[in-house]
Computed example of a mutant assay.
Amino acid sequence: MDQCSDYEQDKSNIEIYPNPAKNRIFILGDAIITCNIYDMKSTLMKSISNPSGKIDISDLPSGLYIFKIKTDQGIISKKVTKQ
């Protein structure tokens, strides 16, 4: 099942940068509805509706996060490291 998820992610037009990031992250893509940020314990750390490209992550502690981005095509997961 993970291979299918990876395939879906590769087909997506979602781009997140910089990675690793310090205080802000940029998300580019079409029809992004929400972006949920989870820590590695699956705790929801931040939820942003209709992100406009730039997300402030300065309030998050350093570590690895999963960005779950909902689009009209489905949900895409991306790993991001916060320095």
Rank of each mutant, 00 (worst) to 15 (best):
83 Q>W: 08
52 S>P: 02
62 S>T: 15
31 A>K: 10
9 Q>D: 04
83 Q>N: 12
12 S>F: 10
64 L>T: 15
1 M>A: 08
53 G>N: 15
10 D>P: 00
59 D>S: 12
35 C>R: 06
47 S>D: 02
36 N>D: 07
10 D>A: 05
21 A>W: 00
24 R>K: 01
37 I>N: 01
17 Y>P: 00
55 I>N: 10
28 L>T: 11
5 S>H: 02
18 P>V: 03
7 Y>I: 14
8 E>R: 07
78 K>Y: 10
75 I>S: 11
65 Y>R: 05
48 I>Y: 05
50 N>P: 02
70 K>N: 14
79 K>W: 01
69 I>K: 07
72 D>T: 14
14 I>F: 05
3 Q>Y: 11
38 Y>L: 10
24 R>V: 03
29 G>L: 07
50 N>T: 09
33 I>T: 14
41 K>L: 15
69 I>Q: 08
51 P>G: 12
8 E>I: 08
81 T>V: 15
8 E>V: 06
21 A>M: 00
42 S>W: 08
7 Y>M: 12
2 D>Y: 09
57 I>F: 09
22 K>D: 09
79 K>R: 14
78 K>H: 08
1 M>T: 13
46 K>T: 05
3 Q>C: 07
76 I>F: 15
37 I>V: 11
30 D>N: 08
61 P>W: 13
38 Y>H: 05
28 L>P: 01
45 M>C: 15
64 L>H: 14
18 P>G: 02
53 G>Y: 13
71 T>G: 14
77 S>M: 05
63 G>R: 10
78 K>F: 10
39 D>E: 12
46 K>Q: 13
18 P>S: 04
81 T>S: 14
23 N>W: 04
5 S>F: 07
59 D>C: 04
25 I>A: 01
5 S>E: 10
23 N>E: 04
52 S>G: 09
23 N>T: 03
6 D>K: 10
29 G>V: 09
32 I>F: 05
56 D>N: 13
49 S>L: 11
1 M>F: 02
16 I>K: 00
16 I>V: 04
74 G>D: 10
54 K>Y: 06
29 G>T: 08
38 Y>D: 06
